[in-house]
Amino acid sequence: MKDLVLIGGGHSHAIALREFAKSPLLGIRITLISDVLQTPYSGMLPGYLAGFYTFDEAHIDLRPLANLAQAEFYCDRAIALDLQQNQVLCANRPPIPFDVLSIDIGSTPATLNVPGAATYAIPAKPVPKLLESWQQFREEVLQSPEQIRSLATVGGGAGGVELTLSIQAHLNKILAPQYRQNIEYHLFHSSSHILSSHSQYAARTLTKIMQNRGIHLHLNQTVTQLKKQTSERLELNCQSGLTLECDRIFWVTQAAAPDWLSASGLSTDNQGFIQVNHHLQSVSHPNIFASGDIATLLNNPRPKAGVFAVRQGKPLFENLCRRLQDKPLISYHPQQQFLTLIGTGTGKAVASRGRFGIGPFRLLWTCKDWIDRRFMEAIAPKG
């Protein structure tokens, strides 16, 4: 009997578990370790914030998925690896041995280099903490809608733009018209324009949408410090001298990896992400695989985007099976360009691929909704 251990319930692992449910592998014991019972599907998260989806619709319930794959499920947090003994060390249970290990734990925004960010900002990941903070703020707004409030988002990539638009759209939906102007929205970005890695069309279009909706864009602004202004308010300081008082600060900047991965002895890049080859296999430890945001393809690095985690699911499953059976591994070749559909929070979306962009159109959101629901129906058993 060989032990396959999966750390994390990310998109690639969800797909791999579904494939194991369809095609069980004899003589293999599968264990899934995740610190959450329900993992968010990134494609539906902005729609959930905007109020288009329920919590269950936008989350993958890992326990029934693990049951289908006949996998043992431990709701726990991995904190280290013992690569001499081939064991995963967890926060609340004895070490878990493995013959083959796969890691798909996503990433977190890099905040540690900005004083006060780790204490006062709400990072976009891990998502459960983001959603908890959002629900708390939503309830505060509903309880006293007459109060003047200010929200700030740090990071002008697709994640920060979509988060801001979705939150504003949701609050506008639930607030009476006379209270909607009581909330100010600010977005800070260190570059001269938002969506730097997307088409110019998408950047121009979404800039115009945000400005038309009264969202304050602070471009060429590097945030240098967050601190407590009063018992209830925060202060955001920029390198330029710009200062803003706000009630919540969402942090959606470049991704980072947990320190325990590099400390374990795995080969990692400068940001701590696991370096893998074209088999999604660690370049330093051939019995370890990684996928999604936590992995960096050594010879073909790609952006940290959910589309790659989804595309890696089946190649990862295939190579885990092959490694367990001592068979040659297959290659994974990521696409060089990919389509991004950025929701406006109002039932429309802007499409961006390479230099090409169109929208905002309701049809694009309808297509995105169809794709996302189809994926969830295929991957996430309910009950």
Rank of each mutant, 00 (worst) to 15 (best):
N212K: 12
R204G: 13
H193R: 11
Y179D: 11
L195I: 03
S166R: 01
H189C: 07
K173A: 08
T164K: 07
S199K: 04
A169R: 01
H189D: 11
N220E: 12
A176F: 04
T164A: 14
S196Y: 10
L219W: 02
I183V: 14
L206S: 02
S196F: 03
L171V: 07
L171N: 02
Q200R: 15
L195E: 09
L219I: 11
A176R: 13
G160P: 11
P177R: 08
Q211K: 08
H170V: 00
P177V: 13
I174Y: 06
E184H: 13
N172V: 08
I194C: 03
N212Y: 04
L163A: 14
Q200V: 07
V161M: 00
K173D: 07
G160K: 04
V161D: 03
V161E: 01
P177F: 10
L219H: 07
P177A: 15
I215G: 09
G157Q: 02
G160Y: 00
Q221T: 14
Q211Y: 01
A202M: 00
A158E: 02
Q178F: 05
L219V: 08
T207P: 04
T207E: 01
L187Q: 03
L195M: 07
N212P: 06
H198A: 09
L171K: 03
E184T: 15
S191F: 06
M210H: 05
G214N: 09
G159K: 07
H170S: 06
L206A: 10
L217S: 06
L195D: 08
L165H: 05
S192K: 11
R204S: 15
H218R: 07
I194Y: 09
H193L: 06
Q168W: 01
Y185P: 12
L217I: 04
H193N: 10
Y185I: 06
G157H: 13
A158W: 01
L165T: 06
H189V: 03
A202N: 07
M210G: 12
G160L: 02
L206K: 03
T164F: 00
T207D: 05
T205S: 13
G160E: 01
H189T: 03
Y179V: 09
G214D: 05
R204A: 13
